[in-house]
């Protein structure tokens, strides 16, 4: 009944086509990671040497770990900040006069070209003598991840009538209980969407990171850009494929953990 009336011809097809579009270059990357040629443009033959090279490369692993740490940290903290912000923006929608100003402030980091943020943050960090090693990168990332963590949350909240929260607190549920059992579950898709957007934004950042990174704290994009300038060898593809496999394992394992729990 419901499913039938929800189907719109062409939408499912578009979704799968969209997915294919997103994965097309990735498939090519993986194919070329098994290329024995030194450049990715020309196919010469099958080889797994590039995987060995990638796994033997200390600098690369250091960069990948730094990226994962920064990415997870930035995702966690930006979501942690975006959640109460979105709630505040939602709750007082009629009375909150400076709402528009705050909203603009949230979106502001998107507006300034990265290279400008990079220079300004570096100058500012230097001026206040901030030297937290990888923490410098983390702080810079949290700032520009906030709009990404916030937007899906905000969009989500807009669809929820405040009466829902009110109904819950009318049942004499304490604020923490309302938050834990009503707000968070209701917002989960928004939280998760925002967190994923924040993660891919942080994980991919080059310009700001290159500028604010203190000595010895290289991230994966910085490393990859340097490899690209040396001529793209399939080693980069191998790294990408390894990361992809890692993320797939992550998805699969969390899916399985969940299956086990529910069964």
């Amino acid at each position: 009944m419901a499913a039938a009336s929800l189907k719109i011809p062409g939408f499912g097809g578009t979704a799968w086509a969209g997915l294919a579009f997103l994965y097309a270059p990735i498939v090519i990357l993986i194919v070329f990671s098994f290329n024995s040629s030194k450049l990715i443009t020309v196919w010469e033959g099958f080889s797994t040497d590039w995987y060995r090279a990638a796994l033997d490369n200390d600098d690369l692993q250091r960069a990948a770990i730094n990226s994962l740490i920064v990415g997870c940290g930035a995702t966690f903290f930006s979501t942690l900040i975006a959640l109460p912000t979105a709630l505040a923006m939602h709750s007082r929608r009629k009375k909150f006069r400076s709402q528009q100003a705050v909203h603009s402030l949230i979106m502001l980091p998107l507006l300034i070209p990265e290279v400008v943020i990079a220079i300004a943050s570096l100058s500012f960090f230097t001026a206040i003598g901030l030297s937290l090693d990888i923490g410098n990168i983390l702080i810079a990332h949290i700032v520009f991840c906030i709009p990404f963590a916030y937007s899906p949350l905000h969009a989500r909240l807009e669809t929820i009538p405040p009466s829902l929260f009110e109904a819950a607190s009318d049942l004499y549920a304490g604020p923490w209980l309302v938050f834990r059992h009503v707000t968070v579950p209701l917002l989960m898709p928004g939280i998760f969407s925002g967190a994923m957007l924040a993660f891919i934004t942080s994980f991919d950042d080059f310009i700001i990171t290159e500028m604010v990174a203190p000595p010895g704290a290289m991230t994966l994009p910085v490393y990859i850009y340097s490899m690209v300038r040396r001529g793209i060898t399939p080693e980069i593809n191998a790294i990408s494929a390894i990361l992809l496999a890692l993320s797939m394992i992550l998805v699969l394992s969390s899916y399985l953990i969940n299956q086990k729990k529910t069964s």
Binding site: F199, F203, P221, V228, I232, I236, L244
Partner: peptide, 12 residues
């Protein structure tokens, strides 16, 4: 939808 974006933009 987001996994392809774990690969660097430049590479993609």
């Amino acid at each position: 939808v987001t996994i392809p974006f774990w690969t660097n933009l430049l590479i993609r």
